[in-house]
Design a protein around this nucleic acid. Structure first.
Lengths: 314, 314
DNA sequence: TATTGCCATTCCATAATACGGACCGCACTT
DNA sequence: AAGTGCGGTCCGTATTATGGAATGGCAATA
């Protein structure tokens, strides 16, 4: 499982420092994880992580992403990325734009989303109004983050209409748990043992991509989050980009989601922060309540624990 | 649901003859392919094909699909499916419904679709009006099929509002090239050498899932399609389900898509069939023309300077 | 209560598979 | 002409996935 993590990243960091693309968001926040690969499925992990990365990178690049970029950002050898990409293209999940040879997501990815969307996750549906309300009220950008193993995934983003825009986080972005306010809120809500497990599992990638956030720093902000009752990210991920987050306790799934608001320090300090947190906590409990109701509606009725779907509509 | 059909452990072939009705769609049409695995990427092939299969199956089964079903339909050992499914769940592409342990597509699949959807394939966008017109005019269900290696993928479906509904094909369904009218139209439009290559590559799966469609039968209907100028499927896939299709020559990508209309024999015979085909051919050239225009528009000028997704939907 | 089947899950020896460093050829720049 | 960065390919190695068989659990059946 060992990879020489320490050899290349330094250079990549240097490159990036010089080029400094404007939409360098994903440059900082995204990376491949091999974590929690439990049983034999590394290649699937890699392939699907790469697929997501492709989607995120291609969003800001209408012409597609080059193989080199993809390899560079994911931190994997070109040959490997190339091989995976070929498979994705063959299956239609990725697409190769012809004259340039760049890549973007393919038709099959879109269709997969449609298949998935036919039955949207209730969490997303029920959280949406809250996101909108918070965004309107705060005039800052608001996010819904969900847990995904030892990572967090930005599932929804709602623009506020204030002067300040924050591009540090977008739908589809994945971070190790603890990186970013929402992610931190989720991490802090876990049992101690599980926190340690996550830190352990993500150790390599954390030191590789976020050397400033050591295990001890992480433990520190987890503790603070627990004391405060909300998570605060003081520009740890992207300098100048602050955020606050509160946990959402999803009925049946535990504390696996978070609401967060991103902005700049002045707008997240003092009284304003407290007010914001209060509003967010209220919305979090609104979401929890409607999820609980929803679940009862579904759970009730003639269906025993093991619902065998007797009807066939078609 | 018709579980009695699946009591048969191995031979899906047999229950096809007996069951085969609408709800069992994927029972007939879906299967795993290992085809065209060119370089090393089998496991990715398997994983992503299974993912799509999960999406298609779960669409008709609100409670999700069991591992056994998935293994049965895909024709792969349970252990293998289980391993892949675990990886998919870990990554959020699949989800495990808890009390029952069944599976459905996960949040990440949905988000992937959103990432892909921000820049919809022009083909789909521009074909949509034609699909609607044909569906209205014919009062039958109309499809857009696209090539995907040695397979075809149903990308769009537009309901007609006639009395007859046809459930033999749905968005996300994949068939070996040649199976179904649209798929056949695409196959017939390929070079001879490539047709043979496809037949070769799909050989195993064809004999396993569609024993009635031998290589020679396939060559026969390809020839007929070329002579007629349109593809006709006389219930070869699902008894009683007929369809006609015409090829779409996508500028820059060649004959990789098809328009098709599915119905029953009486509605696809004689003069009506000819009229329908005429309309479809006209629409196909409309689509080809608008794609060509679109491409010129894109090719020229410095594009709309990276639109930064200003709108938030939802 | 005992039985039977179905289903998910785990194991493990084997062999197939993915891996990635090195290399190639091309297009465009200096 | 030399240099640079790109996408793509090769190929020996050892890591990895594989799937048949065995296990355990849960329900409905006898």
């Amino acid at each position: 499982m060992r990879e020489d993590a320490t050899s290349d990243p330094l250079e990549t960091v240097r490159d990036r420092g010089q080029i400094t693309r404007r939409s360098a968001t994903w440059n900082i926040v995204h990376a491949m994880d091999e974590s929690a690969a439990g049983s034999g499925a590394q290649s699937i992990h890699r392939a699907l992580t790469l697929l997501n990365l492709l989607g995120v990178m291609a969003r800001d690049r209408p012409d597609g992403v080059t193989l080199a970029d993809l390899a560079h950002v994911s931190g994997r050898p070109k040959a490997s990325v190339h091989r995976v990409l070929n498979a994705l293209v063959q299956l239609g999940y990725a697409e190769r734009i012809e004259p340039s040879g760049r890549y973007r997501l393919g038709l099959q990815s879109q269709i997969l989303g449609e298949l998935a969307g036919e039955r949207t996750d209730p969490l997303l549906r029920l959280a949406s109004p809250s996101l909108v309300r918070i965004a309107e009220l705060s005039e800052d950008t608001t996010f819904l983050t969900v847990r995904q193993g030892s990572f967090s995934l930005c599932a929804r983003r709602e623009e506020g209409f204030g002067e300040i825009r924050n591009n540090a986080l977008a739908v589809g972005d994945r971070h190790p748990l603890g990186v970013g306010a929402g992610s931190l809120a989720i991490l802090a809500a876990l049992e101690d043992a599980e926190v340690e497990h996550v830190i352990e599992v993500n150790g390599e990638i954390m030191s590789r991509r976020y050397p400033r956030i050591s295990a001890d720093v992480l433990r520190g902000i987890v503790d603070r989050t627990r004391r405060d009752g909300y998570a605060l990210n003081e520009g740890l991920v992207a300098p100048g980009s602050w955020a606050v987050a509160v946990i959402i306790n999803v009925p049946g799934r535990g504390p696996t989601a978070a609401l967060s608001v991103a902005s700049i320090e002045p707008r997240l300090s003092g009284a304003r922060r407290d007010e914001l947190v209060a509003v967010m906590k209220k919305e979090a409990s609104v979401i929890e309540a409607s999820l609980a109701n929803q679940q009862h509606d579904e759970g009730a009725g003639p269906v025993s624990p093991r619902a065998q779907a007797p009807r066939r509509t078609s």
